[in-house]
């Protein structure tokens, strides 16, 4: 208890009400503490949404300016890898929701099991993403480090209706790939942070934390994990699915 609380609240008044020991002194009830924690997490997530939206706005403008370059750039990505990663991430969101539910039901083993599945799926996502990045490096699609426009100035046999790009528009595929690497890279960074936090939470849950009724931490981590999933839900169609019919 901090000194101010001692000074302002007489001991006999405090002793008058019962509450679980995890309720901090400045909250009246456990429910109020829980809602405050969720509210604070949402304020943080809103700032994260604004952060990613700056990139989405840049994407929107450049896609309108250099549309042919964006179409050809998008055709270089592996659609099966993107779809598989979307499935992996949606599965991990579901398992995370089940982990929060298990914490709510105070089932320690179930909580650990769902968290472990979430962790494996999260790492699986990063592996597939890493494979894709490696593939794009091999094909000289990394602007600034390893880029060549030759893939865009002749007709791709997989997309025979694509016209070869003029040299100036072919240069603009760098804009597409810059946005692609920035957005998927920042998303992957959020995944890595999430995985590190998840491992720490599993360590704590192993010792019996979060299944004693106090589960704000797990619940807020769940919110973060679902937020990362939502970012990918937008990244996938915008980066992988531009005009696949051509």
């Amino acid at each position: 208890m901090d000194s101010q609380a001692i000074a302002t609240i007489p001991e006999q008044e405090h002793a008058g009400h019962e509450h679980p020991e995890y309720v901090r002194h400045h909250f009246a009830t456990a429910a109020q503490q829980r809602e405050t924690a969720n509210f604070g997490m949402w304020l943080f997530l809103l700032t994260e949404i604004m952060f990613f939206s700056g990139l989405f706005a840049a994407y929107l403008i450049y896609r309108n300016w250099y549309y042919p370059a964006f179409v050809t750039g998008s055709h270089q990505l592996k659609i099966w890898a993107g779809t598989l990663n979307t499935l992996v991430l949606i599965c991990s969101s579901f398992t995370m929701a089940m982990a929060v539910y298990s914490a709510e039901m105070r089932k320690r083993k179930a909580l650990l099991r769902w968290m472990a599945i979430t962790l494996i799926l999260g790492m699986g996502f990063l592996c597939i993403k890493g494979y894709e990045w490696h593939d794009e490096w091999e094909h000289h699609h990394v602007p600034g480090l390893n880029f060549s426009t030759t893939a865009f100035t002749h007709v791709d046999p997989r997309y025979p209706m694509d016209k070869p790009l003029a040299p100036d528009m072919a240069e603009k595929t760098q804009t597409y790939f810059s946005l692609y690497f920035t957005m998927t890279g920042l998303h992957a960074f959020h995944m890595i942070v999430g995985i590190c936090v998840l491992i720490f939470l599993m360590y704590k849950a192993w010792g019996g934390a979060y299944t004693n009724g106090h589960m704000n931490t797990v619940e807020n981590f769940g919110l973060y994990w679902h937020f990362v999933d939502i970012v990918w839900i937008f990244l996938f169609p915008l980066l992988y699915l531009i005009s696949r019919h051509q």
Binding site: A97, G222, I233, F236, L241, S243
Partner: peptide, 22 residues
Amino acid sequence: FNAVVALAIAVIKAVLVILFFM
């Protein structure tokens, strides 16, 4: 409408995640 459909589906998915998972 390719872009419109893709974005509409993404928005529906995001709203479902926010309403129920979150």
